[in-house]
């Protein structure tokens, strides 16, 4: 473990938190103001009656938008831009969707089991046309369990950085460098959890989320490849290029 001073940890918390808030796509206050806007039954039905390829394309666009904000977040993480370009790409390719899923708890209304999507709050039934009910319900369960941890913005920021800096991703060239950054981030996360007086094993609960995130992302890849097998031209011509780069 690297030796890091308290002042250094405080600085890391501050920088990561600022980066998170500058790139989080929606402010909590904005979302709070929109929380009453739920899709009406006829709007839900209109999403459900879309052809699968249209709904897939819409979701790919929304995911890609969210990922662009995660890339900006990554660039502002202390030390990320000092890594070699290969490793920056490897970490984003493997971790950007995981961070989107972590950030989703900010857009999630646990009481109504709905997520902010395409301008209003949507329940799992809105995504029926995708044809991946199991994945959607797992994503909603994940968001709900993340919400139940009631993470503050600085805790969420550090957990997101911790996920992005996973040193066990395949194809890293400077694994040790990434490992150092991840360990420092974990110390800062631990530091902030203690400072926020959380003694309910929050760090262990967060560690458990790592494997859940990996499983969700691999299931996304499986569902995408099944979709692509049926609609190869739609993916090739209509999906956002960044989405194809990351998941192709």
């Amino acid at each position: 473990c690297p030796t890091v001073s308290m002042a250094e940890l405080d600085h890391l918390v501050q920088v990561t938190s600022k980066s998170h808030l500058e790139t989080c796509q929606y402010l909590r206050e904005e979302l709070h103001q929109m929380s009453w806007q739920k899709f009406l039954q006829d709007e839900v039905e209109s999403y459900q009656s879309k052809p699968p390829e249209v709904m897939w394309q819409l979701c790919a666009v929304k995911i890609t938008e969210a990922i662009q904000y995660v890339v900006e977040f990554a660039k502002r993480i202390d030390g990320f831009m000092d890594l070699c370009q290969n490793d920056q790409i490897v970490l984003l390719k493997a971790g950007s969707l995981e961070v989107v899923l972590v950030r989703m708890c900010r857009l999630f209304d646990s009481q109504n089991n709905s997520v902010y999507f395409d301008g209003k709050f949507a329940g799992p039934d809105v995504f029926k046309a995708l044809g991946c009910d199991d994945l959607i319900s797992s994503v909603f369960d994940f968001a709900k369990s993340m919400c139940s941890l009631h993470l503050s913005e600085d805790e969420l920021a550090l957990f997101s950085a911790f996920i992005l800096l996973s040193a066990d991703r395949s194809w890293l060239q400077e694994k040790l460098q990434v490992e150092k950054l991840q360990q420092k981030t974990e110390l800062a996360l631990q530091h902030v959890l203690q400072k926020n007086q959380r003694e309910d094993g929050a760090l262990n609960k967060l560690r458990c989320k790592v494997s859940a995130l990996r499983s969700l992302c691999s299931r996304h890849a499986e569902n995408l490849s099944a979709f692509r097998a049926v609609y190869p031209d739609i993916v090739r011509t209509h999906f956002p290029p960044l989405y194809k780069e990351l998941f192709g």
Partner: peptide
């Protein structure tokens, strides 16, 4: 590099 053209581009753009 060609395979991740857009990601490279996004990484190289200066942070606004």
């Amino acid at each position: 590099k060609e395979k991740h053209k857009i990601l490279h581009q996004l990484l190289q753009n200066s942070t606004s």
